[in-house]
């Protein structure tokens, strides 16, 4: 899926792509990303001009509109530093989707340059910074939903590596783990019935194992699954992977 070669030693000066979902709803996920990266001695900058990766229009088939946003994104994240993003979906948009819609555009090289240094956060920690064990503690039972846009990338395995190494954290496997949660961005509103049915299935499978937390690397999935859970009166705490990592550090007294 990653169509570009990446620098295996990207360095510790990073640009944060916070994602529009965190910008709108989930500020704590972006905060946790910064705290985790800074714990790892990274110098994090946040380009203020950032908006969105362009995926909504890309998926809707409006590639012209999407390219406009991607061009803005390329401009915003100029430079050579790695761009780290707490979302497998946005990361995949940058290193795969954008390349597809720029195939016949003259500025493909610029898009490719950004693609080549964009990392999903867990992938960055494990494969970029070579951290394979996560300190602190998080005594709880959690179900990890591998978000779909991390298929065929390193992120799923990287996330597992990190979570499984946390003291006290028990990851419970659940049925039909390979299935999508039904979010799919605009899919969730253009196919509301199927989307909700998929979400209920996913939630049902996960809840069967009685986890305290539902964890994912994509807030899109959790927005959707959490939304269904709330509506149906089910109790499950949804957390982004990076929030678990941050809270593990806090629980271990490693950060304030």
């Amino acid at each position: 899926m990653i169509a570009v070669d990446r620098d295996p030693s990207p360095g510790k000066k990073v640009q944060l792509m916070a994602t529009c979902l965190c910008d709108s709803f989930f500020d704590d996920v972006a905060v946790a990303t910064v705290e985790v990266l800074e714990y790892l001695k990274c110098e994090v900058t946040f380009p203020e001009e950032q908006t969105c990766c362009g995926q909504p229009a890309f998926n809707a088939g409006d590639w012209k509109s999407s390219r406009k946003v991607v061009r803005h994104c390329v401009k915003t994240f100029a430079g050579d530093e790695p761009v780290v993003v707490p979302s497998g979906s946005c990361a995949a948009m940058v290193f795969h989707g954008a390349l597809l819609e720029f195939e016949e555009e003259s500025d493909l090289p610029e898009v490719r340059q950004l693609a080549g240094r964009t990392w999903e956060i867990a992938d960055f920690i494990v494969n970029g910074l070579r951290v394979a064990e996560w300190p602190g503690k998080f005594p709880a039972k959690a179900a990890f939903h591998r978000s779909c846009h991390t298929r065929e990338t390193n992120s799923g395995a990287a996330t597992r590596t990190l979570l499984e190494s946390i003291d006290g954290l028990e990851l419970v496997p659940f049925g039909e783990g390979e299935q999508c949660c039904g979010f799919g961005g605009t899919f969730s509103v253009t196919f509301p019935n199927i989307s909700a049915a998929m979400g209920k299935l996913k939630l049902g499978n996960a809840l069967k194992e009685n986890p305290e937390y539902l964890v994912s690397g994509d807030m899109g999935c959790l927005l959707h699954l959490g939304g269904i859970a709330t509506r149906e009166g089910k109790t499950i705490k949804t957390r982004h992977v990076v929030q678990i990592l941050r809270d593990s550090l806090r629980n271990g007294g490693l950060i304030p």
Partner: peptide, 19 residues
């Protein structure tokens, strides 16, 4: 990012806006 609100909220709650 969730464009058509009504279709969304039919079966899902939307979290608090913290833009």
């Amino acid at each position: 990012p969730v464009p058509a609100l009504r279709a969304w909220t039919k079966s899902r709650q939307l979290p608090e806006w913290r833009g």
